[in-house]
Design a protein around this nucleic acid. Structure first.
Lengths: 346, 346
DNA sequence: TTGTAGGCGTTATCAA
DNA sequence: TTGATAACGCCTACAA
């Protein structure tokens, strides 16, 4: 039971391979009766065209785009990916994807294989390879970068203004009247965390509030447990009436820690997160946060990629902006001053 | 600036294409100096082997496996996919994936393209195509089905015992002393929902408690909002001291609804969900649920697929079992003296 | 409208 | 060890 090829079909149908190809792709006109006969034989033999050979012969793309993400899990990546894939699929393109787990080696490997396999384009989410190597590996393949800026690819970086987000989040708390605002940040090796922290600092500076390193704490990773732990530490170190966590998971973890210590949110402490994960609507209280336009960004990436593939001059991309999503976890401080045990101030 | 092929390298290096191929794949021994020369030219010309042509010539697989999921988003799918991909990547295989959005047409389309593109295997999560068509489309490609049972593919179905899960969840509530236990189920067109409901009913039956249709409510979908809405309806219809939601999102939604009506959980109403999403640990109170072994299942699927690809007789798969994860949302009903009262033993 | 021939980039076969 | 040469399965001239 060998594979049936276009030749088998041709022979069986009493025509030439070329003719079969024509009825297959509608490349040229074929006499109806011949065409019908061919179709019939195709069905009989259960013939399936070999897409590989097809691409090879045509020299064109393989109908696939390569996607490399840090992780396949996590609401953020999933949503972006989902939006991205929906756009792609509508154009008949498929996604060949792999995760790097933050390993440059994995990334390199995947990138190599994908380009060799003839992906028509590349979508890289927060790649960790150094600029130069990345550019080399990419070669001339149309590429969109997400959450990573490389000057040479300036036109193709889909980013979000994390600094602005951090600024707006902090400003929200300031506007509510908070003055001692803590910040729990994901580990600062991650660019987004640094940027959000910067925004936080800027907002404070603008308000004339001095940076207090006792109120800034760098967590071990970016999940809820670290948020909890960081908050525990925070509670021992300083006093604060509000808390900015650089992502929602940590914010939710912080909420847990505060509740465990019998603080109520937002009465005793206000919290704001970042990302607007669906989880924000399910905690008690619901979490104020910075909305992250995941779907839009995934869609944008896809469209930009399609433009590049079609040879059009792609739009110039400007950073997306996140905006405030105020829910229950943020409110004005209870009294005039911070209600949380004022170690330093008292 | 055309593509540089193996011929270009050969010419430039003063050897034959075959030799270049040899140094490339280590297929046979090549004199060190020749080999070195070839390597040098490869670097100079920036030659990249064409994986398509490679597969074509070798007649072997393309190094890819096709994956079709209902959705790319959602913690459940992401985690399974992530675990699956990690196993695969370790073997140098890549994933070409697409989502069907529950559309048979999309599924058909993707399946066709993937097999044509020469995927070596298929991983289908809860496909919606009818058995017969699915089998036909799959052909002889090694396949693993997740959360779908097809007799012909009995050995390759990775499933979970949803019925058992529903039973255990309900039994947990019964054991706590609850008698009026409501059930919010995802729409019953989804098999998993029907099965979990069955488990619920069985537990009640076993306890001699009659089915009360006022306490069973079918939500519009399976997200938290429907859980909230369903609970709202429930509160108007019947009285209950415990609630089994057939998934965590709905459970979390139910929790919100109850809290909005000033019921406290678990004092007034106990809640148990299903899936053990990370969200369960972040709600207040934390959610009791049935643990769903997502990673294990994803990993299992990958391993089974690898076995098939290697021609080994794959292990026979038995359904995974979910187990109870008791957290804060379930407790004995108010006024109950002894929390757990096993009828038989007392 | 149809068939023939040559090529896509690589590997396998078989002499040399 | 090497190098021709024939596949691999399909497509696109070009010719008929």
């Amino acid at each position: 039971m060998k594979k049936v090829t276009i030749h088998d079909v041709a022979k069986q149908a009493g025509v030439s391979p070329a003719t079969v190809s024509r009825v297959l792709n509608g490349t040229a006109k074929v006499k109806p009766d011949k065409a019908e006969q061919v179709q019939k034989v195709i069905a009989e033999l259960g013939y399936r065209p070999n897409a590989l050979a097809h691409s090879l012969a045509q020299g064109k793309g393989s109908g696939t785009v390569g996607v490399i993400v840090r992780h396949l899990y996590g609401e953020f990546f999933s949503l972006v990916l989902s939006a991205f894939e929906n756009e792609l699929r509508a154009k008949g393109l498929h996604m060949i994807c792999s995760s790097s787990n933050g390993s440059a080696q994995e990334e390199r490997q995947s990138l190599k294989i994908m380009t060799q396999r003839g992906v028509e384009a590349l979508f890289l989410m927060a790649p960790c390879l150094p600029d130069a190597e990345l550019l080399e590996l990419i070669g001339t393949t149309p590429t969109v970068l997400m959450n990573r800026y490389i000057p040479e690819l300036a036109r193709s970086c889909v980013t979000i203004d994390n600094r602005l987000g951090g600024y707006l989040a902090t400003k929200h708390l300031l506007d509510l009247g908070h003055e001692r605002i803590a910040c729990i940040t994901a580990y600062l090796t991650r660019q987004f965390a640094r940027q959000r922290l910067e925004g936080y600092l800027e907002a404070l500076r603008e308000k004339g509030i001095a940076r207090d390193d006792l109120l800034i704490i760098e967590a071990d990773d970016l999940y809820s447990e670290s948020g909890t732990q960081a908050t525990e530490r925070l509670l021992k170190l300083g006093s604060f009436s509000a808390l900015f966590a650089t992502n929602d998971l940590m914010a939710a973890g912080a909420l847990k820690a505060l509740q465990a210590h019998a603080y109520s949110v937002p009465e005793d402490v206000s919290i704001i997160g970042f990302d607007d994960l669906s989880l924000c609507q399910l905690t008690t209280p619901t979490l104020s946060t910075m909305h992250y336009p995941t779907e839009e960004m995934g869609k944008c990436a896809a469209q930009h990629l399609l433009q590049q593939m079609e040879g059009k001059a792609p739009d110039t991309l400007s950073p997306f902006k996140s905006y405030l999503k105020i829910r229950e976890s943020s409110a004005a401080p209870k009294g005039q001053t911070s209600p949380v045990k004022p170690l330093v101030e008292s």
